[in-house]
């Protein structure tokens, strides 16, 4: 094996155990020194990496299905949806949401439950540029109102809803806690749907080429925020 091939293979994988590679070390102290140095470099990289501190609570945050995790919340959201469906069927005779409208409702509520543990911990506003980037990714734009109506956004992420829809999830602070604004570019629903849930309240509102949801805790005043968002949202063509 010539020096070029040896150098190439040693740098590509110092732990190459092919017999021809190991055989090329025989009687070549310079090659052995180079290989030892490269192995030491790999060892040091592993050492540096092992010293990157893994956040203490990360493992808990990744926990799957238990009372507080995704499956639990999902089941909770589904149960809440069933209550909502029953409510519509038995007490709201004027309007019966379609299956797709209910599916949108379920997906939004489920998503809010899933994201709540994350956005609840964030109180620092993010830049409007970051908000615009997320909105653009979801095919929507929002004009930042001025003065007293200026939106303070602490969380903005593109989210998958129900496995097929793509929307923008923003969170702003209300008087009683975080309030979610979800904007989804999809066929507008027939009419506004109330979110009825033990924890959250709000409305899903058709808006030109998409749907908008404002969802907050039970005690929250949402009407003004709904009006602000509704007046400033634009859907991409």
């Amino acid at each position: 094996m010539d020096d070029l091939e040896f150098h190439t293979r040693a740098h590509s994988n110092p732990f190459d155990e092919d017999s021809d590679f190991l055989g090329a070390l025989s009687g070549r102290e310079d090659r052995r020194r180079l290989l030892d140095e490269l192995k030491q470099l790999d060892h040091s990289i592993r050492l540096v990496t092992q010293h990157i501190e893994v956040p203490n609570r990360l493992r808990q945050k990744l926990a799957a299905p238990d009372n507080r995790s995704w499956l639990g919340r999902r089941a909770f959201a589904y149960a809440a949806s069933l209550v909502l469906v029953a409510g519509f069927v038995f007490s709201t005779m004027q309007y019966r949401p379609s299956a797709s409208e209910l599916a949108l409702h379920d997906a939004m509520l489920e998503h809010v439950y899933a994201e709540a543990p994350r956005y609840e911990q964030i109180t620092v506003p993010i830049s409007w540029l970051e908000v615009e980037t997320v909105l653009a990714d979801a095919g929507v734009s929002l004009h930042q109102p001025e003065g007293e109506e200026t939106l303070i956004i602490t969380f903005a992420k593109v989210c998958g809803l129900g496995g097929t829809l793509r929307g923008a999830h923003l969170v702003t602070m209300g008087k009683n806690g975080p309030v979610s604004v979800i904007l989804v570019r999809s066929t507008p629903i027939g009419r506004s749907l109330d979110v009825k849930d033990p924890r959250f309240q709000g409305r899903i509102v058709p808006s030109n080429d998409g749907n908008m949801a404002v969802i907050g805790e039970q005690a929250e005043e949402l009407q003004r925020l709904e009006q602000i968002i509704s007046s400033n949202v634009e859907w991409s063509i």
């Binding site: 990360l58 493992r59 799957a64």
Partner: peptide
Amino acid sequence: NRKKRYESLVDRFYQDVFRYAYW
């Protein structure tokens, strides 16, 4: 058992995944 299988996967890999994510 989907949950147990998932939990096992998290236990085994989350630190490596975090450290690679960091880099």
